[in-house]
Write a protein that binds this DNA or RNA. Structure first.
Length: 574
RNA sequence: GCACCGGUGGCUCAAUGGAUAGAGCACCUGACUUCGGAUCAGGCGGUUGGGGGUUCGAGUCCCUCCCGGUGCGCCA
């Protein structure tokens, strides 16, 4: 598409507008290049040009300012694009420009791989229009993100927008509260002259710091991210009130609807089902029935590298006079996911692009991902590979007789199980060095091992039902009550009985690897017993009832842990 | 420099202060004509980074040193 006349930038803008209008900017199909893939490809190229081209770099500042300033709510995307297109010579049209042409592609266009020229073209003509386009780009990426997470069975209730924290006056009120409490002061001299800072010197948490002052408002009057985060945290805790007690809240507007068939099933976006809200700056817009914010306990699930700003936020809540709320503000920190050097080399080999890493970098135990440098694994691409590998494994075991629809669903379940278990099995404060071979493993200590145990257990009951021997939980309990359990079976019962305790421990320690490892323990015990404890072909009725009772307990326990707690779907067959 | 997190078999990871430090991968040897072999049984491989201390008992707690990572923006 977009093979019309005109300079590259004009073609891209026109194509963007057309596809936005046709609602084809974002795809719901796994494995096809999508809008976020395009951005992923473009980001490192644009970054390289920033580094190589000072004049081009200046444009970034202009665009960021335009985005900060925002745009009129009346400005539609077509109008914004029309405004940008009307600027004479809005594209430089030379082959060296960062966005070039390479023919048909399912995306907007394929970026040119060659480096850039030095003329950045005309200055940003219409900041409002630029901000409007930026908002559309952000929303398209957000929708891609939602679909990706939906594939993993993750749904959302509300999407708070940072711009609305300012737009709704949250920061304005938080700033007043901070001033009234004496928590911040305006610096009149020194390197922070003209800034509003929060002093952390008196807090033991920050003792020993070279500079114990955190700037919340810059000398140019613009609030920092941490400042906005304090206002946001006050809203989360229901502490953002006017002097008359009126609670501050966002406006809310429907963003999408979604459905999910079961606890670990894929989340699908469409026109039916539960509503996903986004915030708005207009308090007159109210959600249908849900309320948000004003929590008694707040978990901020953020990378461990945000520990320092998160501490500042917590400290701000405390000095504002809410020590209990500060204690109820929990930073659920997790270590980063990085790449093994082998994974990096594989990515370079696959993409044909060199990341330009030094030998020193490649000698490290892991390499940090970087969107700017294009170093990373795209979740959808990984999932697509997992699905195809799982499908292949199913076909190898079951022959070609599996209906394509059933095979697709089972392969998805196995792929999601493999991915989610790999993420869950490791404690959260250890760097997860991503390795392709490990991620694609389906045997051993993996998600599919756990899924297989659940599938196998259920198969026992399918077979029993065929012979009219399925029984019921109540019958088993009654019959097994007076019988003595052999050690192995008893061990499995005990382990199942420890589940509540393990859940409580996982919650109190915020360590969900405990659940993963508990599930693995259960599956391992079951698999060991499976061979020597046939149920259908049990030597006598009493033995059969005993085994049936224990395996029934296992089947329900493992399925609950996998689907309800770990979000790992249990497929019908594998 | 200060702060936080890691250091456990060749590799990737477990282990509320408590039993002989457990799993998986890799390597080697095996397994039911029966509910599915993505499984199971067995073997090989560890002075838990070094040193000191507390304790009846330390991978785990304290001190110290070494190695690796991250954070300490008028970025978000």
């Amino acid at each position: 598409m977009a093979q019309g006349e005109g300079a590259p930038r004009q073609r891209v803008l026109a194509a963007f507008a057309a596809r936005h209008e046709a609602r084809t900017l974002v795809s719901t199909a796994l494995g096809t290049p999508d809008f976020d893939d395009l951005c992923w490809d473009l980001y490192p190229r644009v970054t390289r040009r920033y580094e190589a081209d000072e004049a081009f770099s200046a444009r970034r500042t202009e665009v960021l300012h335009a985005m900060e300033a925002g745009f009129s709510p009346d400005l539609t995307l077509p109008a914004a694009i029309a405004s940008l297109l009307s600027v004479p010579g809005a594209g430089d049209g030379r082959p060296g420009s960062p966005v070039g042409q390479e023919g048909e592609d399912s995306r907007l266009s394929t970026p040119n791989r060659s480096g850039g020229g030095s003329d950045p073209g005309p200055r940003t003509p219409d900041p409002g229009a630029v901000a409007r386009v930026a908002a559309a780009v952000a929303e398209a990426n957000l929708r891609c993100h939602l679909i990706t997470m939906g594939r993993l069975g993750v749904a959302y209730d509300v999407l708070p927008h940072e711009s609305d924290i300012l737009g709704r006056g949250f920061w304005k009120r938080a700033f007043e509260l901070l001033q009234d409490s004496g928590a911040i002061r305006l610096e009149t001299e020194g390197k922070n002259a003209g800034c509003w800072v929060m002093s952390l010197a008196e807090s033991p948490e920050f003792a020993g710091m070279a500079d114990a002052d955190k700037i919340l408002v810059r000398s140019n009057g613009i609030v920092t991210y941490t400042g906005k985060d304090i206002a946001y945290q006050l809203w989360k805790l229901g502490l953002l009130r006017d002097p008359d007690g009126t609670l501050h809240d966002f406006g809310y507007r429907p963003f999408a609807r979604w459905q999910q068939a079961g606890p670990a099933a894929e989340v699908r976006y469409g026109t039916e089902g539960r509503e996903l809200e986004r915030t708005s700056a207009d308090p007159a817009e109210r959600p249908a029935g849900d309320t948000f914010g004003a929590g008694t306990r707040v978990y901020n699930v953020i990378d461990v590298r945000q520990s320092y700003p998160q501490k500042v936020v917590k400290e701000a809540i405390r000095v504002l006079g809410y020590p209990e709320a500060a204690e109820a503000s929990v930073h659920f920190a997790y270590e980063m996911v990085a790449l093994t050097p082998a994974a990096v080399k594989r990515l370079e080999a696959t993409s044909g692009v060199s990341f330009g890493l030094s030998d020193e970098d490649l000698a490290k135990p892991f390499i940090e991902m970087s969107g700017r440098r294009g170093i990373g694994v795209e979740a959808d691409a990984l999932l697509a590979t997992l699905v195809s590998e799982a499908g292949r494994a199913i076909a190898a075991r079951q022959g070609e007789g599996v209906a394509p629809a059933a095979l697709g669903e089972r392969a998805r379940a196995i792929a999601v199980g493999a991915l989610r278990y790999q993420m869950a099995r490791q404690s959260r404060n250890r760097v997860l060095a991503f390795d392709f071979d490990e991620a694609l493993a389906f045997e051993g200590d993996t998600g599919p091992y756990l899924q297989y145990s659940a599938v196998r257990a259920r198969k026992i009951f399918d077979k029993l039902a065929e012979h009219g021997l399925a029984g019921s939980a109540a019958e088993d309990a009654a019959a097994a009550g007076g019988l003595e359990l052999p050690d192995g079976l008893w061990e499995l019962v005990l382990a199942c009985g420890r589940t509540d305790e393990m859940v409580a421990k996982a919650v109190s320690s915020l360590e969900f690897s405990l659940l993963a490892s508990h599930a693995h323990d259960l599956a391992m015990l079951f698999h060991k017993l499976y061979h020597d404890n046939p149920v259908l072909h049990a030597p006598d009725e009493a033995t059969r009832v005993l085994r049936r009772a224990v395996f029934r307990l296992f089947a329900t326990t493992i399925t609950d842990i996998l689907e309800e707690l770990l979000g790992i779907p249990v497929p019908a067959e594998m």
